[in-house]
Design a protein around this nucleic acid. Structure first.
Length: 546
RNA sequence: GCGCCCGUAGCUCAGAGGAUAGAGCGCUGGCCUGCGGAGCCAGAGGACGCAGGUUCAAAUCCUGCCGGGCGUACCA
């Protein structure tokens, strides 16, 4: 039961009794200031004109009609607002319901019988994953968890670009390293990959393969490309393992070609009249539909572009029957996204089938200053190494604690050495403290036999009621975080809940307080439950001891 | 030039029509003879980039500027 619903239904009745038309959604907010009550509605501002009254007049009439109505202790008009203060017993019931839900609290039903695919990372296998990929890995993984929490069946997918020019360059770069290891002077190709990780593999191949590939020909290309992709994938798996991200499905670009899906997609676009020929290439007529430029789908040499394959891939996703597809991508993909979305629209695919979670880039701030990453130049911080330094929990949390569309500065020093004032630890510590308290309660024989039957009436302290009100928000936060692609809302919520708990704990004794003890333990069981659920959704551990 | 994202406390960022704008870090000063001080309490610190407009009400919506990021490839 959301608390807002209590005020909504009361206001609905009062409006009906006054003969005022009832809006589809009666606005109810949580006031920032305690003197404005537990709940507040600005409905009078919306409807005053309708009934030719001023907002304060209408608000006063509504308040008069609702005065003394349970579960409200008071209903007051202030300005044009109608402010509600709840009876503590109403909050006690909220807490009881949360405890009764147990591990299911926060779960939703909206996704029942529906499937969502979240595609993320999808980094080209040209090197290990870096801190740049971390934001995407964390975001995608958390979004998938959030949708899972709302009842959706969720598929985490990685799209593997194992074809094309970048793979070619990677293979040739590796070959050059291999030749260098054999003592030949072979330069890294123009636009190739300079990272040390290829040098190591090159040396190893020189030992095992000897001088078997003296020239860069078709045979060498095949061998080195296969080897390079395998090696890169192994590294990527290690990095994903380090931050605890698992994919359900890996789709390879090469498979899309082999299954004829690219050709099929092209046929559909032709049939829809969405393409035209120019300069020997085939173009998507995007400007005709309001985009800023047309893009090439098939080059004049007959090979399909990345965009073409991307369209084919998304048609394939559609054919798989997902109700929703979420692509997590960086800000450099905006144009690409528009093009793919347009193509799907022209092919009659339902609006809303594909949604993009677009995120800005991460810059790394460390002692030497701010540095830009470049896999190609071999200048990057590998994900695995980052996790080794700051831990998986901090790495993940820091990546989702800002909204995706904000630039994110990863303060390395803060993440690593401030185990003192780090928000991750602050939240985890709240969980640990409660766990410790329950251990203590068990030792002292103060654990209630049946937590659901505890008398909650001793919970009267404003801090206790504030905690219950905050617990009541949790399902709304989960839902908003999922729908708006905004996991940072969950971080903010958990930090806020923790900042209500810590002072409470510091000032209110729980154990040895007679009838208050089981009531307070019940409250803290609720807090622990929600902290644990929230952290789990973020993929961050909720330790019993630290 | 054009398109998209972002300008809020010294720093990193929440708030996205409502009532006196928030948090963390940093800074100043307090609190360890009771459940974990990884904590608590108090304080200093703001023309919400600028200028107009819409509204009973704008940090929030609209327009135009100014700053920063990204894109604007027959790259992926």
């Amino acid at each position: 039961m959301r608390l807002e619903a209590l005020a909504r239904s009361a206001l609905g009745e009062a409006l009906g009794a006054l003969g005022v038309p009832i809006p589809a959604e009666i606005p109810v907010d949580r006031p920032a200031r305690p003197e404005h009550g537990d709940l507040s509605s600005r409905v009078a501002f919306l409807l005053a004109r309708w009934v030719r009254k001023s907002p304060p007049e209408l608000a006063a009439e509504l308040a008069a009609r609702l005065a003394g109505r349970p579960p409200f202790r008071s209903v007051q008009a202030e300005g044009g607002f109608v402010n509600f203060t709840l009876e503590p017993s109403a909050l006690h019931e909220v807490l009881r319901a949360i405890l009764a839900d147990g591990g299911h609290y926060g779960r939703g039903e909206e996704g029942k019988g529906k499937t969502v695919q979240v595609e993320f990372v999808s980094s080209n296998p040209t090197g290990p994953l870096t801190i740049g990929h971390l934001r995407q890995a964390a975001l995608g993984d958390v979004l998938a968890s959030l949708y899972g929490e709302l009842g959706w069946t969720c598929v985490r997918e990685y799209y593997l670009n194992d074809e094309g020019r970048q793979m070619e360059l990677l293979a040739q770069s590796l070959w050059a390293r291999y030749r260098q290891a054999l003592g030949h002077e072979e330069p890294i190709p123009e636009g190739g990959y300079h990272g040390d990780y290829l040098a190591e593999i090159g040396e190893e191949l020189a030992r095992t393969w000897g001088d078997a590939y003296p020239v860069w020909d078709g045979r060498a290309r095949e061998a080195f490309r296969a080897e390079a992709v395998d090696r890169m994938m192994a590294m990527i798996h290690e990095d994903l393992e380090a931050i605890g991200v698992r994919f359900d499905v890996w789709t390879r670009e090469g498979d899309l070609h082999r299954r004829g899906l690219v050709a099929q997609a092209l046929e559909r676009l032709r049939a829809a009249g969405a393409v035209y020929e120019k300069d020997g290439a085939l173009w998507l007529a995007s400007t005709r539909h309001g985009l800023s430029r047309d893009v090439v789908l098939v080059r004049s040499d007959g090979t399909p572009t990345y965009t073409m394959v991307d369209i084919a891939y998304h048609l394939e996703k559609h054919a798989r029957g997902f109700d929703l597809v979420v692509d997590v991508q960086g800000a450099d993909h905006v144009d690409e996204q528009r093009q793919v979305a347009l193509a799907l629209r022209l092919l009659g695919i339902r609006e809303g089938f594909l949604r993009y979670c677009l995120h800005q880039f991460v810059t790394l701030k460390r002692e030497e200053g701010v540095q830009r990453m470049s896999t190609r130049a071999g200048r990057f911080l590998r994900l695995k190494d980052l996790v080794a330094e700051v831990g998986r929990d901090v790495a993940r949390y820091f990546m989702v604690m800002r909204k995706p569309e904000s630039h994110l500065v990863f303060d390395f020093a803060l993440a690593r050495d401030t185990s003192m004032e780090n928000p991750v630890y602050y939240v985890q510590y709240a969980h640990t403290r409660i766990a410790s308290l329950f251990r203590e309660a068990a030792r002292a024989g103060e654990l209630p036999d049946d937590p659901l039957r505890v008398d909650l009436s001793p919970l009267a302290d404003p801090r206790e009621l504030a905690l219950v009100k905050e617990l009541d928000r949790f399902p709304d936060v989960v839902q908003a975080a999922a729908h708006e692609f905004a996991p940072h809302l969950l971080c903010e919520y958990l930090e806020n809940l923790s900042s209500l708990f810590h002072p409470y704990y510091a000032h209110v004794r729980v154990l040895g307080q007679g009838a208050a003890t089981p009531a307070r333990l019940a409250l803290l069981a609720g807090v622990k439950l929600v902290l644990g659920r929230g952290l789990a959704l973020l993929g961050v551990s909720a330790p019993e001891e630290m």
